[in-house]
Design a binder for these strands. Structure first.
Lengths: 243, 243
DNA sequence: AGAATAGTGTCTCTAAGACATTATCGC
DNA sequence: GCGATAATGTCTTAGAGACACTATTCT
């Protein structure tokens, strides 16, 4: 279990961190025909949240998002995109933050920096569910996948952030461009198909879906086939190596 | 000339303002077949920039963007959308900020809040050029429209912000949905047509363009015609009142 | 009438949707 | 061969693009 990477743990005073702004990545996975979201529980609180984090003073915001994503999942070089900032002046609740800090064994004064107004930069990431190595730390009681439609109640506006992320994801999926990032490097057309159906929430006719996907010219068919089942085995596909 | 609305002018200490985060709206207009951008000059510096501003502690980020837009243009209820945040840790330059403050007659200490790292929330607005009443203040030497392809060199990454805003605008225009916001309430199909051609930077065949626009079902033809010229006068259109 | 610009009709071609058909695998 | 699933073929329809044509206004 990794522990040293979360700045809050070793740094409750927030030294070297930007105040008033946080990064909240919505990390999507796909497994057993279900869209999954990564949710953490703050230690000893029963409070669930997005696996967010702060930005270091000498670090780009994008770098902070990558760092947090890598710290939580063990993955790098994944699809990660900033999609919106959430800036309502009263979107956070000092009482809730206080509970979180107390759960971490830290008793904040009323003027503690993390009790003040916070703006959140929303990112969404698409990761290969089978490759993730979820990591908790002292501030995190649990870090787990939840079915998209069965996430527990979340603090602040985190549910809104997830919903907005899904809207953006759907919009981008409609362009048929980025769905592959949620699958292992090698996959079948049916897997890709069910992924799209699940995320978009509607049926797509298999012949048309395949035609569309192949016409994009970014898939490569691998001439090996699956084994085992009592029916025709599907082709395997992967991303075309490069441009 | 309005003066009292820019918090920097009456508040160089930044009391009541969020530190480390600013709003930079890219305000687009359209006039004489040219896409225009609103650019300010910081007083006594020769430094050009987007007409940005700060966020008040008790104000949503979106409200701050609206306030700044209204303050500069006199307009409210215009198309205004957050499109990206710019978070490179070294995107601003303390020396440049110092020049700006000195130009305002204020000599900052080296630890002045506005010399530190700043994150910018990028918005873009589409306004009716003919309706704007541009407003300067004590911190602003000028506030003027520039042809999109002839803006002067800008401070920081403001040119990047403009370019990214135009990319987003083009993408949205391709969906054929939001171009009307750049025109007066009543316009001809040709005006709409040249607007799209100019912004998208490509030719569109008039019959197809008209067919597409009318098929959207959001335009209403007003059965009055223009006067004067020695040729057929065009129909006038406006947005359909509501849904 | 004729110049100039506005607006319409229509042909072609491509792409999407629906559905029928063929192919392959293991029993 | 048979059941099950994968993959392909093709018919229909909708829309984009190109271009020819008609309409209107004023000189």
């Amino acid at each position: 279990m990794l522990r040293q990477n979360d700045p809050r743990e070793i740094n409750p005073q927030g030294n070297g961190l930007l105040k008033g702004i946080a990064v909240d990545p919505v990390i999507f996975g796909f497994h057993e025909n279900q869209l999954k979201v990564l949710i953490i529980e703050h230690t000893n609180t029963g409070l669930y949240a997005l696996p967010g984090g702060y930005i270091q003073e000498n670090e780009d915001v994008d770098e902070a998002a990558e760092r947090i994503l890598t710290m939580r999942t063990g993955l790098s070089d994944v699809y990660l995109e900033q999609f919106h900032i959430f800036g309502k002046y009263n979107r956070t609740d000092p009482e809730v933050v206080k509970k979180i800090l107390i759960g971490q064994g830290f008793t904040p004064t009323d003027d503690h920096w993390s009790l003040k107004r916070f703006i959140s930069v929303g990112y969404y990431a698409l990761v290969d569910y089978t490759k993730t190595r979820l990591t908790t730390d002292l501030t995190t009681g649990s870090c787990d996948w939840y079915d998209f439609d069965a996430v527990p109640p979340l603090i602040f506006d985190h549910q809104l952030i997830i919903d907005k992320a899904l809207t953006t994801l759907r919009h981008n999926l409609d362009q048929m461009l980025i769905g592959f990032n949620l699958l292992p490097p090698i996959f079948t057309m049916v897997e890709l198909h069910t992924l799209y159906e699940t995320v978009l929430g509607k049926k797509l006719l298999p012949p048309n879906f395949q035609r569309k996907m192949l016409s994009l010219g970014i898939l490569e068919r691998i001439e090996k086939k699956k084994t085992g089942k009592a029916h025709k085995s599907p082709y395997l596909y992967r991303f075309k190596p490069s441009e």
